[in-house]
Design a protein around this nucleic acid. Sequence first.
DNA 1: GATGCTTACGATACCCGTAAAGATA
DNA 2: TATCTTTACGGGTATCGTAAGCATC
Lengths: 307, 307
Amino acid sequence: MNFQQLKIIRETVRQQFNLTETSQHLQTSQSNVSKHIRELELELGVQLFIRKGKRLLDLTEAGKSLFPTVEQVLIDADNIKRIVDEFTLINQGELIIATTHTQARYVLPPIIQKFKQQFPNVHLVLQQTSPNEIVNLLLQGKVDIGIATEALTQEQLLTGTPYYTWQHSIIVPKNHPLSLKDKVSLADLTNYPIVTYHEGYTGRTNINQAFADARLTPNIVMSALDSDVIKTYVELGLGIGIISHIAYNAERDHNLVAIKTNLFEFNTTWIAIRKGRLLREYSYKFIKLCSPDTNLEALKASIKKPL
Amino acid sequence: MNFQQLKIIRETVRQQFNLTETSQHLQTSQSNVSKHIRELELELGVQLFIRKGKRLLDLTEAGKSLFPTVEQVLIDADNIKRIVDEFTLINQGELIIATTHTQARYVLPPIIQKFKQQFPNVHLVLQQTSPNEIVNLLLQGKVDIGIATEALTQEQLLTGTPYYTWQHSIIVPKNHPLSLKDKVSLADLTNYPIVTYHEGYTGRTNINQAFADARLTPNIVMSALDSDVIKTYVELGLGIGIISHIAYNAERDHNLVAIKTNLFEFNTTWIAIRKGRLLREYSYKFIKLCSPDTNLEALKASIKKPL
DNA sequence: GATGCTTACGATACCCGTAAAGATA
DNA sequence: TATCTTTACGGGTATCGTAAGCATC
């Protein structure tokens, strides 16, 4: 058993049992991948993959049982490198953050500015993607920190800390009838076409829930991945918008009016990291910058409990 | 980085930085050990060992930081093999138990008999040693289960379950003056020479404590590692004995009288296993046989929290 | 027929142990 | 001088990629 074999097992699963893909991702040859798999199976004395003829279809029961441990070994091997870097590359390295558009555009800029002042030699990578993909990237150890409102709290293998809470606001063009009302109700909203976030993004779950609870059906004419797109179409008169209040800026968005409401539940945006995967010290400092109340020691402890 | 290098790091620490010893334990050559260490250091870009000239003295700070992770990787690699065995060698394999004389001689026999009936193909190894050594063996992953009264609950990296509680009894030769008294006090005991367990064995801590609390000084003329030795010398008239009540058998020990007392605190004998190290299913069955009330799921969960 | 896996084979790199040399106590 | 570590070197093995062969879809 060697690390290359374990990496191949992991990557084969990630590439859904396509050995050609696996070999390309690991920068090696197909034949190598194939041979390593069978040699590991031979050494362990058990089939790890279900085969149909020559094709690999899935992990066997045995394969499924040991796969989490394989992942843990590889993560720990990676941890060793990061521990070393903590000594050789002090306050220097890479910090990869996976987050959504809303955070990247409206929330993180001042944090990142401060972080960059404190750690000028840390190369910051901001990877903008969907909440589900953030979970994937975290689980695969491809990013250090994930920040999003959705999906992050479901996964056993992730841990983290709440970042901030917020609510949705209604945005309408200037002089829109809704902007003249004292109080806007959910029923009012159903009278207009609505533009808001896509399913699985930026608290859309809570929006759906509010209408469902009130037994109302909103007329959602368009859903988008980010607030800027929504605002653009609301400006064009396509409908009224429901966006994170964070994404509204009175000055810049002078063509729009934001209406604060309590119609939708509070959302919590989370900072998440993968259990079992150590972070560089500066990564914890970043989290502390985001959420100064975080108990870093407790967070570090929770990392050390993989399931 | 490969497994051999990590094994060498671990063994070098275990052998207190003597590379010759390390090579012998790993069945390889001295030069290999030496080279692997320096190549790993080169690859990681950091010194792992403090050297004085050519001799290795200790781990560096960096080495100390990553050592627990190195151990975890190797344990997990071992776990993978055990997981495989769970599929290929069903109810078959090895179960190594480290325990003290008292358990091996007086407590475990009926358990082991039952276990052997249920799992005839499991090779049982009973390793009899001191509580401190049991802790060592557990930490090094050289035994599956440790059973003892002392030392097992101190270590962060161990987890486990209480087995049973017991008290010490006084044993005296037949017709000894103490055997005629209605109630024996601690002060009474100080009037006679005492034979009991060695420090660190079989509840000796509690014996010391009881005398200390009463501000009495016992006249301990001899200390032994096991109850049989103590009984032998009490029979010879060397003094009165203090042994685990479990170790007294009225029939077999017909030359001795046991006096039950509450003079000493209750002792708890523990079953301990190492965190992070998976056990074969039959090992858990063994624990269940010992202590039927154990919540095995909770125990398994506690294994998965290294530190 | 296109894609994907296995086998064959030769080149290379790596790992190992012996032996000699050098350092430490 | 004993013990211990490093360096040098040669043999063996493992790993790698290319290319060809074969199975699957």
